[in-house]
């Protein structure tokens, strides 16, 4: 019985190690941004975010005051780097969060008319 418990524990520990060793999945990151009122603002922000090698696509919504991006499989961009990029573009980041939705789903959500 004890051997069985040890085996179970060892298996669980191995599974945990394997799980953490998996490559990081592609990330969808959303940011609430202040000062987003014009297309030129969006253009500058998009240009900054696309400069990250990990970025695959960017969505900007003036209406939702939101900037979202997706990253390549196995990559991510640290919150501090994202905040710096938007601050360097001249805007104020209120919040950064990771989403389980794909970027296409985010795009559909922000483009949906009320």
């Amino acid at each position: 019985m004890r051997n069985g418990k040890n085996t179970l524990f060892a298996f669980a520990a191995f599974a945990a190690v394997i799980a953490t060793a998996q490559p990081v999945a592609a990330a969808t990151i959303e940011m609430d941004v202040n000062g987003l009122v014009c297309a030129f603002c969006a253009q500058g922000i998009e240009k900054k975010l696309r400069a990250f090698p990990a970025t695959t696509d960017v969505v900007v919504s003036l209406e939702k005051k939101l900037v979202a991006l997706s990253t390549k499989d196995g990559t991510d961009i640290a919150d501090d780097e994202l905040k710096k990029a938007l601050t360097d573009a001249g805007y104020t980041v209120k919040a950064v969060r990771r989403e389980s939705e794909s970027l296409d789903e985010v795009r559909r959500r922000v483009e949906a008319k009320p």
Binding site: I45, K47, A89
Partner: peptide, 11 residues
Amino acid sequence: SAQAKPIAFAD
């Protein structure tokens, strides 16, 4: 943008 600005965006 609604108005012309002497600086559009970085880079």
